[in-house]
């Protein structure tokens, strides 16, 4: 640990199939909002690893010029309206993006990513109602990783089927295996078509698991090692690789090659980000109004 990253860091490891499956089914013009656990979605939506790393380090080449940090990544070019530090804080922003898409007739879809913990903030229910009422082109992607921060699902809801909430608002809802990238892709594809056909929003409950702690340094006293190991066996990346190999879509050699290229790209992005400049004090007063 070199202490280069400020504040808390929230890992996305274990949930990758959700980000990749969802964003692969979207167009570049479609917009997303995410929580602070958003780097996976940002990369999948097309954000540059270099600028993400630079923002993590608080440098000028970061997406937010070092003033937002990992919790507030935003990139309008790729339709990332913003990551959010409040668990349900960004959902209604996607309602707004869906509303302007509808009013402009722009055939864009707005996607809100959020965790299971977010469904108990009032604004989630308000946003669900509003999106359903106005028949907006929107997809609610609930990444149910079974824990709201450190508290298990069973300790904070009577009805653990979060998808049931959709029916209450007259919205289509579906449970999806969030560790199966193809299943995620297909579900989002049909939700997107529904949205663009003017048939309104969809709620997708993606069943997944966060393999790391809530944040870096989380002692994870609230779950057993056995439980984590069980989910590790269902790691979405391993599953997808196995599928590719078994179905003959790729060879071990090709996958190793791709992995190597990707690792090298990320390492180089991280290395370059370390060389990006620190923002000067004059930027403190910029972009307030």
């Amino acid at each position: 640990m070199e202490g280069l990253v400020g504040g808390s860091y929230h890992s996305y490891v274990g949930q990758e199939a959700v980000a990749v499956g969802v964003c692969s089914a979207l167009a570049r013009e479609d917009t997303i909002t995410t929580t602070y656990r958003g780097r996976g979605q940002h990369l999948a939506k097309g954000a540059s690893a270099y600028r993400l790393f630079a923002e993590l380090l608080g440098r000028v080449d970061g997406y937010c010029k070092g003033k937002g940090g990992p919790m507030h990544i935003c990139d309008l070019e790729t339709g990332i309206l913003g990551a959010n530090g409040i668990v349900a804080g960004g959902i209604s922003h996607s309602v707004g993006a869906a509303l302007t898409a509808q009013m402009s007739g722009s055939r864009q879809v707005a996607v809100a990513f959020f965790g299971d913990g977010a469904v108990n903030q009032g604004v989630f229910s308000e946003a669900m109602n509003l999106a359903a009422l106005w028949n907006l082109p929107m997809i609610f992607v609930c990444e149910n990783n079974l824990y709201a921060e450190m508290t298990p699902l069973s300790s904070y809801v009577k009805n653990a089927r979060l998808v049931d909430r959709a029916a209450a608002f007259g919205m289509v809802g579906e449970v999806v295996d969030g560790n199966d990238v193809e299943a995620v892709f297909r579900a989002v594809q049909s939700a997107r078509t529904r949205a663009l056909d003017g048939r309104g929003p969809t709620f997708l409950e993606m069943m997944t698991y966060r393999l790391h702690g809530h944040m870096l340094g989380d002692p994870e006293t609230y779950r057993s090692k056995e439980e984590v190991a069980e989910w590790r066996a269902r790691d979405p990346i391993v599953r997808w690789k196995t599928h590719l190999l078994e179905s003959g879509l790729a060879t071990e050699g090709r996958l190793a090659e791709l992995e190597q290229t990707l690792d090298a790209e990320l390492a180089s992005a991280a290395e370059r980000a370390r060389a990006s400049l620190e923002p000067g004090p004059e930027t403190i007063l910029e972009d307030v109004l």
């Binding site: 922003h93 604004v123 946003a127 109602n129």
Partner: peptide, 12 residues
């Protein structure tokens, strides 16, 4: 929700 919708609408 409607103020948040306003935020999203303004950003777009």
């Amino acid at each position: 929700a409607f103020i948040g919708t306003g935020v999203g609408a303004a950003m777009t």
